[in-house]
Amino acid sequence: MADSVERETVIRITGLTTRFGAQTIHENLDLDVYKGEVLGVVGGSGTGKSVLLREIVGLQPVSSGRIDVLGTEVTSCGADAQQVLRQYWGVMFQEGALFSSLTVAQNIQVPIRELTDFPQVVMDDIARVKLSMVGLPPEAGAKFPSQISGGMKKRAGLARALALDPGLLFLDEPTAGLDPISANQFDELIKGLQSSLKLTVFMVTHDLDSLIAICDRIAVLVDRHIVVGTLDELMKVDNPWIQEYFRGPRGRAALAGKERN
């Protein structure tokens, strides 16, 4: 990948090692995420996909190694630097992780309210724009998280992640638990937002279809290490798990689906 050298790096992970007790999850792992790309992270259960995401956003301490996001080392920077950094990224958790005591619109406004003291009219405008961006009707804004469906919760979670117009978006299993139609729509939504807002997306997923549909590059966590490449490159990698993953029945079906489109 000659051209990737010139591209701007948004996330740089070097020599990352993660241990839980005697168990090593990641060992000496390196990964670069470039500006404007969609990177899909896959791997078997327990290979530490979500752990990696949590480490990058500073929710989980690393055992050794360093992680730089937008030029700031998250593993050692102080609370103030982290606070600044948090304005430039948005995180969407698996079930949306909406605050249950707030309405959807208030949920979207939380990050903005922390930073500014805009009048309520402007806040409502912002919430409405974000709702429309993620394809939710304005009525959804007045509802509480317990009153909306799982798919809507994910969309609302995405709207909250986008509240501050971040350049970097983290998605933890965005399509898990959705029916295939909603999952497709969600893929298209992410793709659309990514190209219109010029986002860099770091996406942990199990969903082969969304991997193939929207990811520019794929990172596979296997045997405590990471293998990164485009889909075509990964198909050629000689690793039994990767081969099984892409050439197994589901992988073949997803690839066939891609060719049909």
């Binding site: 409502d124 709702l131 304005p138 009525e139 007045a142």
Partner: peptide, 21 residues
Amino acid sequence: DQQIALIDQVLKVDAEPIPQR
């Protein structure tokens, strides 16, 4: 283009307010 898209998005939702409780 990106700015136009954003402004269009804002204009689009202007007509439909969030219903108040």
